[in-house]
Design a protein around this nucleic acid. Structure first.
Ligand code: SF4
Ligand code: SF4
Lengths: 160, 160
DNA sequence: TGAACTCGGATAGAAAATATCCGAGACAAG
DNA sequence: CTTGTCTCGGATATTTTCTATCCGAGTTCA
């Protein structure tokens, strides 16, 4: 029950992309975050497949958000990287063993599976309520309103 | 972000143990659930280390619950098997890269880490509210009140 | 036309989870 | 008291997943 470490980089990348209306290459994001360039690129591809970011090829290409940051939830980013399958996957062991229940009576999930699904839903809803814009605003507030400005300045300063 | 499959076997084992006041060997539980005997035993050891079950050695030994089933939460079982460390572990990448923040200003967790911790808390509280006794009652209700009776009969019938 | 820069999926390596085995210890029977 | 059998417990292989990397296909600009 551990989350891929790439989720952290993907969330940071989305926050950074929300500060730029121009495409930002994957190598630039990796340099800013101090992460392995090739592996960071792989995670951005996952975001592209999920429709969260759009890629632009060519010399001045890179990644941009497809929607306003306020309309992208943290849950979408997590599911794009870590997969959308639930953490608890029932193997239906109630149908096995000497007291196995016939499959016809297993139409609805068992009580254990229901409890796990309820917990997963609580987790999902908590993340769905938080948008990338909310995260950016909170990070900005933590740093006395200078963090996002620094990011914007760094992005324009290193632009060729 | 996937949970160990052993969690499922452990929860089933606890529900089964709640129906017997006498020790039940690991091999018996594995046979009842149709799971690999050796691997099932390993998970029961984890429950023993967490203080959820108590092991009795010798010929009529086995595992018993240390507390009433109504005082054992599903969260405890999950944490005993899958570990109690949170799914999201911040690598503090905000301190890396050209815009790295000095460690002295990173006393409290960042906004992203806070959002993830809040989601984890929601998940934990949902599981903490459900006890093993609740699960046993719900499984019993799903089977028209015969499931737990069948388990008790099978346990006494196969007792040497 | 050409060159340089981008993404994208296919390819090695490391870590973790899965599954198993045999020895130490304890109880009951003889 | 001795013996034998049954139990748990941790140490050991195997498989799968995650981590990290590389080079080719495609696009844009000069
Ligand atoms: S969690 Fe429920 S449905 Fe899944 S194997 Fe256990 S009893 Fe069956
Ligand atoms: S989640 Fe917050 S604390 Fe953790 S690396 Fe990202 S910015 Fe830093």
């Amino acid at each position: 029950m551990k989350m891929s470490s790439g989720v952290e980089w993907a969330l940071h990348s989305c926050v950074t992309l929300s500060q730029s209306h121009e495409p930002v290459p994957a190598a630039r994001l990796a340099e800013l975050h101090g992460t392995p360039p090739a592996y960071t690129a792989k995670h951005l591809q996952a975001l592209s497949r999920a429709g969260i970011v759009r890629s632009t090829m060519g010399q001045v290409g890179g990644y941009t958000l497809t929607r306003p940051a306020s309309e992208i939830s943290a849950l979408e980013v997590v599911q794009a990287i870590d997969g959308d399958e639930p953490a608890y996957r029932c193997a239906e062991i109630r149908q096995r063993g000497p007291l196995g229940i016939p499959a016809e009576r297993c139409s609805r999930p068992c009580a254990i599976a229901r409890a796990m699904a309820a917990a997963q839903d609580a987790w999902s809803h908590a993340l769905a309520r938080t948008s990338i814009a909310d995260l950016a605003a909170d990070i900005d507030a933590d740093s006395d309103g200078t963090a996002m400005l620094d990011v914007r300045n760094w992005l324009t300063a290193t632009r060729n």
